[in-house]
Amino acid sequence: MLIRKIEKIVTESHHTKSFYFKGGFDANPGQFVMIWIPGVDEIPMGLSTIGETMGITVHSVGVATEKLHSFNEGDKIGIRGPYGNSFDIQGSKLLVIAGGTGIASLMPVVEVAVKDRDVDVAIGALTKEELLFARRVEDSGANLKLATDDGSEGFHGFVSDLAGDLLSEGDYDQMLTCGPEAMMKKVIELGREHNVRTQVSMERFMRCGIGVCGSCAFDGLRICADGPVFDGEEVYGKGDFNKHRRDPAGKRTPLIPNL
């Protein structure tokens, strides 16, 4: 277990903060780490920044994330990882589609891809205030497109509908997406319609992070070790996709959005 001091905390929205710490390990865009909040819990988090300084971006949704939000710069967290596979960038023109905090797991791949490819990034959120990393996407050199459910910024509606409009106009080679599964399902369907392959980043309750315990079972796949990045077609046909998760006791349970 690697122990790191939190070097910097950035408030991204009223419920989301980014935490930065010195890495000392290599990671690829799309990989995640297990973050230990000593005495409280350990949770999987996608890396939102990869480099000498690593970052995670945390939506406060439960006991562990609330505790992490109460931390100050200088406080210590434990890190295991990085774990899982990573995005496999293909083609020269990419469309990246993020829902809510999904942009956190996509930001590193955007920053890598934009170096030698044409990258459009569509970020969607409920409101303007909850749009994350818009500035960082612009700074990366990618083309930023925004959507809000309430119309307070950019396209008025779901980011998947915005993606549909973009697909009708542009000739994309690949789509990368992370967000609510209902949104990702729509994106895979758009990909089929427009003949564009999609990679999705998935999330489930985890314990080991290393493919052993089976807690993150998604049909016959282990999200932690077979994923978290999958070809859209691989997950689309699964009975659990956009329908079920496993609770900590291992029982198949309806999927609750945003968890």
């Binding site: 277990m1 297990m34 230990w36 409280v40 819990d41 350990e42 949770i43 434990g78 295991r80 314990r207 080991c208 992070g209 290393i210 052993v212 315990c213 609770d247 900590p248 006791a249 029982k251």
Partner: peptide
């Protein structure tokens, strides 16, 4: 049904 211990549970 049993949720088991809190994480960390496997290292």
């Amino acid at each position: 049904p049993r949720e088991g211990h809190p994480n960390p549970t496997v290292i």
